[in-house]
Design a protein around this nucleic acid. Structure first.
Lengths: 341, 341
DNA sequence: TTGAAAGCGTTACCAT
DNA sequence: ATGGTAACGCTTTCAA
């Protein structure tokens, strides 16, 4: 069923039918009604490819995912995608995901741009000194960054959690509880979010003139064994930490495992605060959440990001938008006062 | 840069240029060379939308993801997507992901079909009595199932792990170690894979004329708290299990947490075997893997699925393919002989 | 308020 | 081996 057939069935021109269906004002109300009914009856839907060619709009948003990003951000990324995907659907946009090797990111963007596959792209996992904004500007591809790139906050569009403040508050909570040896198990610090978290951690210490022990700082891919191995070795050193601040639930689970292996009790002997991206398969909720955490729904971030991209940036690609997302500090069972020994 | 401009620059017809670029045999070798060089020099790439319209092929594969599926399968799904995505790229296909409400799956497929958005779809999370194959057949959309649907094994194309056999082997390992009270923490059993795992578990018992205690069987979304809560309550009952067979690493981590909370040691006091989908952010490897597991890379599954879909099914949609994936039984630190008390 | 017809950028058929 | 031209199915400009 295509436009020609539909218009023949209605004994109208393709022009009128198209206009009726696309909400053009000059169409007679009852004509429009007739058209819509017939279209529904015959199950007509405009061919996407033809419409794309005619309008020059791809009606899709691209996500280029370098493999290394995916490796480490896998579950977080998926949750973001889920949020964004729903928003795209609501606006009639398709989501195109390209999984490419780390070396092929630039090629992928160039290809996407020259073939006009998408109207805009979402940029994931911004790093310090990230050159994607420059490339995308050159290619004329509108984009929105999930996160920020230092130095480009004013000249790019982004949506981000206030990571620095969240980790500063979490650190202060631990300091208020009397902890003085707090370990930070961070994500890789060439990622902007991780750098900001570390800065927040250090600021909380600096504000009280407290030192930070470099032996208590780690940064790596946020896996479960990373948490377990790091916590284990730190807890076994001569001056062990009494609290951990951790960048992801998965890593925190590893920390909890290590604490158990040492015969200690989380919340009583050792305090743990983790960032919680509110992943659906890792619920940290209920009456009392397992982990005290800084929580921010990455799924909601995806949804907001998609809306901003479609509603603000696409209509006028010169628009710059930036938005902060809420982050809560939630008290669970994994924190308690420092125990003097 | 479009075909018209390129052909003008070459002083050739669009026809010839198109043929040269698309590898048609009748083109003079040196002409082709000239064309290719010029195309590279000018950075020409055929407009995807125009090509799609002209060929009638969308050059994309669709993934319709119901929200509920995504909720529970999130990390597994993402890993599959990563594998499939790479394969699509290699073949020049785009991956379109539609995240929709559970009620809107059928509509989504109908829309996709009538707008000719994709050439084929991948079906995720097959359930018992799943009606998607019938719908897709009606819509004329070629498809491949990740998993199988009971009763449709012979009439649909699919790729699957031998879940039943994997869990039967795992159960036998535990039985060989002397365990007689083995708990099964399964995924939701209206999902085909979970039903097959349970069948394998029961078969291993039946083959030795051993009973299965219904109190030791659970089925739910495979979250971490599900594992922890289930294990906790089972370990506290009067006749506790001495071993757990678990459907996912995440749930197994919960089980490990519960075992620790009970003051027991995994592998010594309580044995655990889990299925391991080889998720990149949950590595279970190293010298000695933490968990004894049945392992099968879901990422590899995605890759194979994409290849089969593109190479076998798309060229001839009447083709039926089915493929079993390897699953290894890997001994880790979480299993040991039954301790007589 | 409606319609005819010209694109949109390819591919593919039919000539030459 | 190469070129002319008609699709592909829609949107949009120009006329009426």
């Amino acid at each position: 069923m295509n436009l020609k057939e539909l218009s023949r069935a209605l004994e109208l021109s393709q022009t009128t039918v198209s206009r009726a269906l696309n909400g053009y004002p000059e169409v007679n109300a009852e004509t429009r009604q007739r058209v819509e009914e017939m279209a529904a009856k015959l199950g007509y839907a405009p061919n996407q490819q033809a419409r794309r060619l005619a309008t020059g709009r791809a009606m899709s948003i691209g996500h280029v995912v370098p493999r290394s990003l995916h490796e480490m951000m896998n579950p977080v990324f998926m949750e973001f995608i889920a949020g964004a995907g729903e928003a795209y659907s609501q606006h009639g946009y398709d989501m195109i995901i390209s999984v490419v090797g780390d070396q092929d990111v630039e090629d992928a963007y160039r290809e996407i741009a020259s073939r006009k596959k998408v109207d805009a792209v979402m940029v994931h996992g911004p790093r310090i000194g990230d050159n994607r904004p420059a490339l995308l500007a050159e290619l004329g591809l509108p984009f929105l960054i999930h996160g920020r790139i230092p130095g480009l906050e004013k000249t790019t569009s982004w949506i981000d959690v206030n990571n620095g403040q969240a980790f500063e508050r979490a650190t202060n909570l631990l300091l208020d509880l009397g902890h003085r040896r707090i370990a930070l198990l961070n994500g890789l610090e060439d990622m902007d979010f991780a750098a900001r978290r570390r800065a927040g951690f250090e600021k909380a210490h600096a504000d009280r003139d407290l030192p930070v022990d470099p032996k208590l700082l780690r940064a790596a891919d946020m896996t479960e064994p990373y948490g377990a191995d790091s916590a284990l070795s730190m807890l076994r050193q001569k001056a062990p930490p009494t609290a951990f601040l951790v960048s992801s639930m998965i890593t925190a689970i590893g920390v909890a495992r290590a604490i158990g292996l040492c015969g200690l009790k989380i919340g009583r002997d050792i305090s743990v605060i983790t960032h919680d991206d509110a992943l659906s398969f890792l619920p940290n909720s209920g009456e009392v959440p397992i982990f005290t955490c800084t929580r921010s729904s990455v799924r909601h971030a995806g949804s907001r990001a998609a809306h901003l991209l479609i509603e603000k940036i696409l209509p006028d690609p010169t628009t710059l938008v930036s938005e902060y997302l809420e982050s809560e500090l939630i008290i669970g069972q994994s924190t308690g006062p420092h125990q003097a020994n």
